[in-house]
Computed example of a mutant assay.
Amino acid sequence: MIANHPVRLRAAAMLAALSLLLTGCFISPGKFTSELQLMDQDRFAFTYEGEIFFLGLSRLAQLGAATETFEANCWDDETGEDRECTAAEVAQQRADWDAGAEERAARSKQEAEQLSMIMGGIDPSNPEASAELARLLLRQKGWDRVEVKGDGVFDVSFSVSGELSHDFMFPVIEGFPVTSPFVQLILRDGDVVRVNAPGFAAQSEDNPATGMMGGIGALAGLAAMDGGSDTGSGANPMPNLPVVEGTFTIVTNGSILANNTDEGPMATAGGQALSWEISPRTRTAPMALIDVSR
């Protein structure tokens, strides 16, 4: 049994966060409501209301600073419990720490450059980074509201409608690398549309977004072990992470050829509706195949 020492936990969280960021898995839903309308004559409308979490702008991605201050750490090899270091152990750890100063500085610089590149040139360490991202999103069509809630979380309202003449993906952000989308529409011949929502599944074994929501879930576990943002130990406590919770609905007057809802289609005034309740326990990404040719 390894003791949950805050320094070791923060170091593990930092490594895990950077791994997610560098694989492009750095955006996830929080609490949300989303609806997609697919109608004949290629008409469509999509809305997303609620939270979006940017890992690169959270304190979790900045926790490397917590390991940049020397602190001697000793524990019992058999029990894993923390114990007081001897003077010799403190001296040895201090010497090792001082010897690694140049390497740590180079690593921190590289990590900062990587984070900035992933965030579309926005420097996450800049106090104005969240406001800068909000301005960037509001400049793009469809983003009607972008409010900074803090610690990487934004409350947004996104809506777009028109003719579905090409594939569609949400979210797409100027200057950001293409990541696993929350929702993806793929057009097939014959006015058939495949709807995938990989960003709305946390634990699917076959889902490429597993690294995003599942990985962030693992980081949330580390945060819980350290007590969360309110009770975490040390000067840089672990932050709380947003809970993935929401509803995704598809409304259509077309023919539903396939879907993986629990209840199946429900009749509506304008046709049929499919609905998925999303939570951290959701294992299968929402999927539907719809013919809108009529």
Rank of each mutant, 00 (worst) to 15 (best):
T69K: 14
L55H: 00
E103W: 05
A202P: 04
V7W: 06
V90L: 13
P265F: 10
N126Y: 09
C74F: 05
K31F: 07
I278K: 10
G80D: 12
A201F: 09
D262V: 14
F170V: 03
E263G: 13
G221I: 13
P239S: 06
E132Q: 14
L60N: 03
F158A: 01
F70L: 06
E128M: 13
E68R: 15
G217S: 13
S229G: 13
L219M: 08
A258L: 12
L289P: 00
G142A: 02
G264K: 00
S293P: 00
E111W: 11
G234Q: 00
R283C: 13
D191W: 00
R145A: 08
S293A: 09
S19V: 12
D226G: 10
P29C: 02
T210H: 05
D167L: 07
F248S: 03
L137A: 00
I118C: 04
D77Q: 15
L55F: 10
F168D: 07
D230Q: 15
A13Y: 01
P198Q: 12
L20H: 06
G211C: 08
G142Y: 01
G120K: 09
P208H: 04
M119R: 09
A101E: 02
F158K: 11
P177G: 11
I290P: 01
G175H: 11
E111H: 06
K141L: 11
P237N: 07
L20W: 05
E103T: 06
A235D: 14
M117D: 10
F158E: 05
R104A: 01
T210P: 04
